[in-house]
Simulated scan of single mutants.
Amino acid sequence: MNDFPRTLKLLTIWLLLGTLVFLGMQVLLHERQRPRLTIHDGQVTLQRSPDGHFHWPGTVDGREVDFLVDTGATTTALPGALAAQLGLRREATVRSQTAGGTVMAWQGRADVALAGGLRFDGLTVTVIDRMDGPPLLGMDVLRRLRLVQDGATLQASLP
């Protein structure tokens, strides 16, 4: 019976250490997923994220989002769930070519703002109901910017 308190103490210590390691890893993972950008003299510099992509924080109709910069996307695309939360109105039904093939989608309008002060009011966006993942920042926005990529850095500014 004397070993029980000692065993309980060791178990408590190991549980506390395990919890600290777990919390430390959660903070590290959260920090690694945070978009990395700097804004200087009207120029936004994005650092490639650990997932290999460039992410640009912004808003859609005031809702904070983390856009995935997608030069292969013709238009800015939103997941259907986000569009529903925002109450976007369907304006047209369209076919959209995705990496997974052709899907039916719809278009609506939204106010898009990007970190760095860039705004695109009333932007026509494509809504893909079954889309998983973050909204895609497409060429409809990116072509309006001067983009320069140098390795793991993407610089964007107005021309």
Rank of each mutant, 00 (worst) to 15 (best):
residue 34 R to K: 15
residue 41 D to A: 14
residue 67 F to I: 05
residue 34 R to C: 01
residue 51 D to H: 13
residue 137 L to N: 04
residue 50 P to L: 09
residue 43 Q to I: 15
residue 125 V to Q: 03
residue 110 A to D: 04
residue 152 A to S: 15
residue 17 L to Q: 01
residue 110 A to N: 02
residue 18 G to V: 01
residue 98 T to Q: 07
residue 146 R to E: 14
residue 7 T to W: 09
residue 98 T to C: 10
residue 15 L to F: 09
residue 3 D to E: 14
residue 26 Q to A: 09
residue 17 L to W: 00
residue 53 H to C: 08
residue 97 Q to M: 12
residue 68 L to E: 08
residue 43 Q to A: 15
residue 36 R to D: 11
residue 1 M to H: 13
residue 76 T to D: 05
residue 68 L to I: 12
residue 152 A to E: 15
residue 132 D to C: 01
residue 84 A to E: 15
residue 118 L to Y: 08
residue 46 L to A: 13
residue 3 D to F: 14
residue 63 R to H: 12
residue 142 L to A: 12
residue 79 P to Y: 07
residue 49 S to I: 09
residue 86 L to K: 10
residue 147 L to C: 14
residue 151 G to S: 11
residue 150 D to S: 14
residue 31 E to P: 00
residue 71 T to R: 07
residue 95 R to F: 04
residue 31 E to C: 01
residue 155 Q to N: 10
residue 25 M to K: 07
residue 102 T to M: 12
residue 75 T to A: 11
residue 14 W to G: 00
residue 111 D to S: 09
residue 135 P to S: 08
residue 147 L to S: 14
residue 137 L to M: 04
residue 18 G to W: 01
residue 77 A to M: 09
residue 43 Q to Y: 03
residue 85 Q to C: 04
residue 51 D to R: 13
residue 139 M to P: 08
residue 63 R to Y: 06
residue 64 E to P: 01
residue 84 A to Q: 15
residue 153 T to I: 15
residue 89 R to Q: 12
residue 159 P to K: 10
residue 140 D to W: 02
residue 135 P to L: 08
residue 54 F to W: 08
residue 61 D to W: 00
residue 133 G to L: 12
residue 24 G to N: 06
residue 144 R to W: 01
residue 91 E to N: 07
residue 5 P to H: 10
residue 14 W to Q: 05
residue 141 V to E: 03
residue 16 L to D: 00
residue 108 G to L: 03
residue 144 R to H: 10
residue 130 R to Q: 14
residue 10 L to M: 07
residue 77 A to N: 01
residue 64 E to Y: 03
residue 133 G to P: 07
